[in-house]
Design a protein around this nucleic acid. Sequence first.
RNA 1: GCCAAAGUAGCUCAACGGUAGAGCACUGGUUUUGUAAACCAGCGGUUGUGGGUUCGAUUCCCACCUUUGGCCCCA
Length: 639
Amino acid sequence: MAQVRLPDGTIINAPDGTTVQGIAEQIGSGLARVAIAGEVDGVRVDLSTAVSGEVAVKIITAKNEEGLEIIRHSCGHIMAEAICSIWPEAKLVYGPTVRDGFYYDIDLGEAITPEDFAKIEAKMVEIIKADKPFARIELGRQEALGRVSGSVYKTDNIERAEGDVLSFYCQGDFEDLCRGPHVPSTGKIDHKAVKIMSVAGAYWHGDASKQMLQRVYGTAWANKKELKAYLFRIEEAKKRDHRVLGKQMDLFSFHKEGPGFAFLHPKGMVIWNEVIDYWRSVHTKYDYGEIKTPIILDQGLWKKSGHWDNYKENMYFTTVDDVDYAIKPMNCPGGLLVYKANKHSYREFPIRMAELGLVHRYESSGQLHGLVRVRQFTQDDAHIFCKPDQIESEIIGVIELVQELYSAFGFKDYHIELSTMPEKRIGSDEIWETATAALRAALERKGLEFQINEGDGAFYGPKIDFHIEDCLQRSWQLGTIQLDFSMPERFELVYTDKDNTEKTPVMIHRAILGSLERFMGILIEHFGGNMPLWLAPEQMRVLPISDKTADYADVIYNKLRDAGMRCTVDCSPEKIGAKIAKAHGDKVGYMLVAGPQEAENGTVSVRMRGSKESKTVKIDELIAIAKGKIADKALELEF
RNA sequence: GCCAAAGUAGCUCAACGGUAGAGCACUGGUUUUGUAAACCAGCGGUUGUGGGUUCGAUUCCCACCUUUGGCCCCA
């Protein structure tokens, strides 16, 4: 007899060899109907898997996240079969699940286009309706290799797979090498909850020197309602896209005369400047000095710093008076020269030099993306020079600064990565080891969770990166803390220590918002353009009911301007409803309706962005409230 | 950079071998308006750029530029 322990702790008995499906039936016929896979002792298996002895079993349904993943994986196979039936010459490569869906990499001479999606979907519906069972076949390594003979991709997959037993899954005549598990039959998928989303190129094994494959993306959900909800979420996310909002709100633009170079408009500059003002105040508090270094510097400097050898392909160059210059891609060499301008004592340490440095990095055209991936950007950079025994406390100080800055913008969700020694690098292995250990120690001291990103450090040192997600759930790096023992040595930086000898300082490179351009893009998406009052390009707009109260509107406007509010008046001949709609479209924080009633009492009727109600307040009262919200960096407008 | 798609008025989109059209915005007029868009009229385009095919190209073909979705890379 098998003793089966269920997730809630109950034990049920079943004859040895009972399948997971059988267990589900024993629990209840309803569960058996919706079961799509199982988990035996923590391992996901097909419903047809037999159990015996003492085991823990969990039944997976479409309601579980695991269930959805299995559905998506099975959908990948169904899509693969559909594609192969349309293009028999298609060679399948690899088809995993991803967040919200799945993809399949396919090698096919002919290009698959969005016009083909309907055809693929129709074929998939046909396969689903045929309710073909998924059958698992297990083979030894040699037999498996024999079974896929002729397919370079599948042979490669087998060579990369671990273990001696490899499995194949068949649905009817279609067969694919696959770890599984799968739904019991294609009919378990709701054909109304599946959709082909896009097709794009992808290198085999992500290697640019390898063949370009076609990657077809699909999504699958438990039912039609969830699919619709997902598609709705995507549409909503697109409305928050900073490129869309940037145009709509007149914040910035791009032009073909400078691809990858953002042009900031007056309203965009308001956000930019507010961010910087706040940034400066926090840096003053954390005892940073600020410097500014040139954008164009002699090429020799970049050879000395190692950028020439390690970063040249991302740099811009220019020649004037027969002298070769580089446009800076990083601020550190300039910062080093500032350090070298004076002699330093250990008593000054740590020296924290911040710089809002404008850098240029050549990025190949395919990777440009609005404000978040550009060729020219301003880093909120800083270089900290300190003694080795100050490293940990300095790193901790930066982490605290990161947390303070992010929370002011309402960013609570970010993840941290620790990147280690890359292939292209300067400095000895011992130095890398010490530096990496120091970063790790600081993170652990702060009790922060982080993941290791092997081989992804900067060429001069390991780094801690802070990532947040945009509205389309793409992850973007913001802050970075990089430890560098090499650059100070190369530039022969010294300080006089207590014992009156000259020693080499340690250098910490760090950026918190990362790129101000990227940060602005993420801010726009984060707030959906509805900026908190302190960041809003237009904090308030006075809306006179008609020309009759135009004079009163001007009085209010002047008072607000005098109080330092960013404010305009809408004196167009529109009706008040139209003015309100327009102001909402422009994402103005407070809409101040001014009619005869208000004029008589010295008040305005305040309508808040996003709200249908309004409140009547005295002008001075409004100013006091707004000033309070701005000073507190309040995220909400309500009062 | 690679694979694919797209580029039409300031913006969002139609038309798809035969004189390029709408809404919003803008300008003028009517309306003097009370909380998410009053009405009328007008202005606005060498259809991304350059070649080619054709009697004729926005439409078909080629190249380039830019953008979009991915891949690789990265702040």
